[in-house]
Design a protein around this nucleic acid. Structure first.
Lengths: 96, 96
DNA sequence: TCCATAGTTCAATAGTTATTTAACTATTAT
DNA sequence: ATAATAGTTAAATAACTATTGAACTATGGA
């Protein structure tokens, strides 16, 4: 567990890069509209791309702190990290 | 003057790409805080990079419809396109 | 007309990003 | 122990992005 020391604009750049992709926008929208935790697989099934690619996109979202992930059995459960959206993009989710 | 036909998510991707850069964030913040039209040169002077590069960044912002530009004499005057921020990123500017 | 100012465009380059395939780890069930 | 399920990692590749310097266009002033 390493500590990241980045300033607010670096954070914004990371967040905007993470959101600047159709697949990742689709994931965010899915999580917002389902309004509950989903498995990586459950999300990935609805995006037509490889599981390796989904894993790549989840990493980008996680590194931007836009999602929270916890492990349960073989699966990983993912949900939106609302406070980050509140801080950096208030009301954005409602525009989706 | 060509017409662009892009859907909302393509628009979001374009906007997020445009904002995912420190120089462009700096420009947006400057325009927001100055709260008035500025010349390209006036903005560029405060960003330490070449005028060619500033021109490149302004193009990215303009293509994402985040700024409005009008020509006056030799100069170009730039200002924020508030309705787009309102539609796609409500309240974002206030977080800067 | 000639010069200065304000921006754009082009080509080159270095770095980054998205995607695929294949091989890997971890957990659960038989 | 083996197999199935769920996800990660690595290498390769193609496409895209940011930056620079030089050459260019357009406008205004001496």
């Amino acid at each position: 567990m390493t500590i990241e020391l980045i300033n607010e604009d670096e954070m914004r750049v990371k967040i905007f890069k993470a959101l600047a992709d159709p697949t990742r926008l689709e994931i965010i929208r899915m999580l917002y509209q389902n309004n509950k935790e989903m498995t990586f697989g459950g999300v990935g099934d609805k995006c037509q791309t490889s599981k390796a690619n989904i894993s790549y996109h989840f990493r980008a979202l996680r590194e931007a702190h836009l999602i929270k992930v916890r492990k349960e059995a073989q699966s990983k459960l993912v949900s939106l990290n609302f406070p980050i959206f509140e801080q950096y993009l208030p009301s954005f989710l409602d525009t989706l």
